[in-house]
Design a protein around this nucleic acid. Sequence first.
DNA 1: CTAGTGATTCCCT
DNA 2: GGGAATCACTAGC
Length: 213
Amino acid sequence: MIAAPDRTPLPREFFDRPVLEVAPDLLGRTLVRSTPDGPIHLRLTEVEAYDGPKDPGSHAYRGRTARNAVMFGPPGHAYVYFTYGMWHCMNLVCGPDGTASAVLLRAGEITEGAGLTRTRRRSARNDKELAKGPARLATALDIDRALDGTDVCAEPSSPLSILTGTPTPDDQVRNGPRTGVSGEGGVHPWRFWIANDPTVSPYRAHKPRRRST
DNA sequence: CTAGTGATTCCCT
DNA sequence: GGGAATCACTAGC
């Protein structure tokens, strides 16, 4: 018999550790997004670590700004940013207050409330694609800058929370280069995913683009 | 399956 | 001014 998933929110101490410990430990956990229409549950299958102001791939690399201020705050809060003129992506802040490290939530499996995501994810050809990529994940869960700074170590009835759920055994965790990260920041193998999971996004190396017109 | 490109706007230089 | 932790769509193999 398999034990029931633990519905207790992750304690703040979970996030108050080095980001490279927290990132793989997040795989298999359940992110709960409570909306007026009902809850959406996401089982995390792919994440990336961003290791503070010394990491050239991190938004914190050039210091604190209005946009990234939440990264410099206490752990267990959501850092949500807007990118490519159209999309949002969500991170979880790790390490002690002031550390400015975070984990980007790259992909997951919608385990409850898939129907609630469909109006925003019309292009998804099947349920595996609903949150297959960081901007798709944020779109599916209706996450934008309004949720920047939200405490995820809260009751599941709050707008955003993360449950203890079922951790992924180490022998099922894989890691490799980060996706879409420009420059030398891309070399670190700080992308973590669950082996053979169909909801993990395809790897894409960073491609610098020249402006058209 | 891979590779190329347009979309669209905020933020920092 | 121009890049950005991306996606959707198209062409071609």
